[in-house]
Design a protein around this nucleic acid. Structure first.
Length: 226
DNA sequence: GGCCAGGACACCA
DNA sequence: TGGTGTCATGGC
């Protein structure tokens, strides 16, 4: 996304470095909007490999559908979702989302996605168990709404490079990305995918900065982005 | 065997 | 309003 404009900056440079290293990520994994929404809820504070197991369980049980999920008992869902961790709370959150989808949109994600922004975002945030990141995952990847997803990797990577404070507010960092990027769901989706990739490979709590495509950490000091 | 992972919420001062 | 505890499995 090389850009000759003078405001070509850290956010664009990081994108270009990551894209050069990884190429297209085709993020987010999921065959349908509903599967993407389920993944967004299940991946809360959880490694994606564990989420995949739970989604595979749902598919094998023919339960990856809002009405099918609502028809299952809690005990059965606990067993299906167990590999994703926090299975009791995630069962409850998933059922809340399905109940809302069925009651207001006939279980149809396309009808949910047809709602305008920002009302749709407020609606998702009002659901129990859906916070800013989960809502934005669903909005961007399942509803094709142009919102940039901020996650722990985003905050960690950009703060370690001295580009923002480590405790920066979710919406403040989101606004920075959205102000510096083209308002395009494919750009937003790919960039978040690149951040997930580099986060998993290099920027865990014990970072492996030596081979990181973003290069050495900058001198922290005053954050560049504000 | 311990640490850690792509959050969200309840509770308390 | 901000800090802390809770939820749980699987990989390394």
């Amino acid at each position: 996304m090389t850009d000759a404009r003078p405001q070509y900056d850290a956010i664009l440079r990081f994108h270009d470095a990551l894209h050069a290293h990884y190429g297209p990520t085709h993020w987010w994994p999921g065959e349908t909007p509903f599967e993407i929404a389920v993944g967004a809820i299940l991946t809360q504070n959880t490694a994606w490999t564990n989420v995949e197991r739970a989604i595979d369980n749902l598919k094998a049980a023919d339960a990856l559908d809002p009405r099918a999920l609502l028809a299952r008992g809690d005990e059965e869902l606990h067993e299906l979702l167990r590999p994703a961790g926090f299975f009791r709370v995630k069962t409850k959150r998933l059922l809340h989302f399905c109940r809302h989808l069925v009651d207001h949109y006939d279980g149809d994600m396309a009808r949910l996605a047809a709602r305008p922004m920002p009302a749709l975002r407020r609606e998702l945030l009002a659901l129990h168990g859906i916070g800013p990141e989960t809502a934005d995952d669903i909005l961007l990847y399942a509803c094709d709404k142009p919102v940039f997803v901020i996650d722990a990797y985003t905050r960690r990577i950009f703060s370690r490079h001295g580009l923002c404070p480590p405790d920066i507010d979710y919406h403040a960092l989101q606004a920075l990305f959205e102000a510096h990027l083209p308002r395009d769901i494919h750009v937003y989706g790919e960039y978040h995918g690149l951040i997930v990739f580099v986060g998993k490979d290099f920027c865990r709590r014990s970072p492996k900065c030596d081979a990181c495509p973003l290069g050495p950490l900058l001198d922290p000091g005053q954050p560049v982005l504000s």
